[in-house]
Simulated scan of single mutants.
Amino acid sequence: KDMQLKEFIQANKSSFEEEKMSANADANFEQLLKSKLYSPKKAKLKYLKYVSIAACLAMLIATLFWYQGYAENIEDKRELLANLQDDSAGKRLEGIYKFNDEYKKEDTKIINTLVKVLHKDTNANVKIATIDALLKFPKNEKIRINLIKALEKEETPLVQIKLIKAVSFLRENRAQKPLEKIINSKQTFPIVKSNATLAMVEIKQ
């Protein structure tokens, strides 16, 4: 056995030379080092790639949902405006109630349409509901001015009372002249006159 080992060592003597062993070890170490250094980098790149894809998909989905919501809002607004201009008083009231329930922010086009309803509608209930709807935005100057203008021209007692209460609620000093006109008119109903008198006192306080 000793002879066989000795012969094996002599036959493979070149493999055990220090330089060759060192070179082989260096090569193996370098290969191992590269695998350890570059594998995480590749994994990191793959991870970043997947994260980018996921982010793009999330943005795409969010955009689709936003567009769907935007399209639905546009359609709802068209339906509401159509109702406000419908020949049926019931439909007009439906549009006003929808505005009251769903709109928390001012919408110029809808407010302009409501102002037209306030001045031109022939149905007292529609006008009263419109006044309530407009009062959702008491700081809107156009709304305030048109409530005063409506008070100057309105002849239906129930609508007059609603307008009087509206300008009183707003503490609108510019409403004093139309209120005085209502108070001094012989054609004014007593209940309207008493409401106008009370509103004058409240506005002046």
Rank of each mutant, 00 (worst) to 15 (best):
N125F: 11
N125M: 10
S88L: 10
K34I: 05
Q85W: 01
L170Y: 03
S22H: 05
N123L: 02
I182K: 03
R174N: 09
E172P: 02
F29I: 06
F137L: 00
A196Y: 04
E75Q: 04
K1F: 11
Q31R: 13
L57A: 15
A43Q: 11
K162H: 04
R171C: 10
K193I: 03
A62C: 10
I164Y: 00
S194A: 08
L158C: 09
K142V: 14
E75K: 02
P190L: 13
E172C: 07
E202L: 15
E155L: 09
S194T: 13
R174Y: 03
E30Q: 12
A11Q: 14
A196S: 07
N112D: 14
K42I: 07
I191S: 14
K20F: 14
A129P: 02
R92M: 07
F189Q: 14
I203N: 06
I96D: 01
Q160S: 05
L93S: 11
T113I: 04
A71F: 05
L151H: 05
K49F: 14
I61Y: 09
S35Q: 15
D86L: 08
K127T: 02
N140M: 06
A11D: 09
V51K: 12
N146F: 01
L170C: 04
F99M: 05
S35I: 10
R174A: 12
M200L: 15
K120T: 13
Q205F: 10
A23H: 12
S194I: 12
A89R: 13
A55H: 08
A129C: 06
L198M: 13
D26F: 13
N195T: 11
L57N: 14
T156K: 10
K6H: 09
R144I: 09
K162L: 01
I53Y: 10
K49H: 15
M3G: 07
L118D: 00
N173V: 04
S52M: 06
A58H: 06
F29H: 07
A25P: 04
L64P: 04
Q176C: 07
N123F: 00
Q31D: 10
T197P: 09
I61V: 15
T63L: 11
N100K: 15
Y103P: 05
E106W: 01
K13P: 05
A175D: 00
N195F: 12
S35K: 15
K1S: 12
L170R: 01
G95H: 03
A54C: 09
K165A: 13
V192P: 00
C56E: 15
K139G: 12
T188A: 03
F169D: 11
K186M: 08
L147A: 03
Q187W: 13
I145L: 10
Y70Q: 00
L45W: 08
I203F: 06
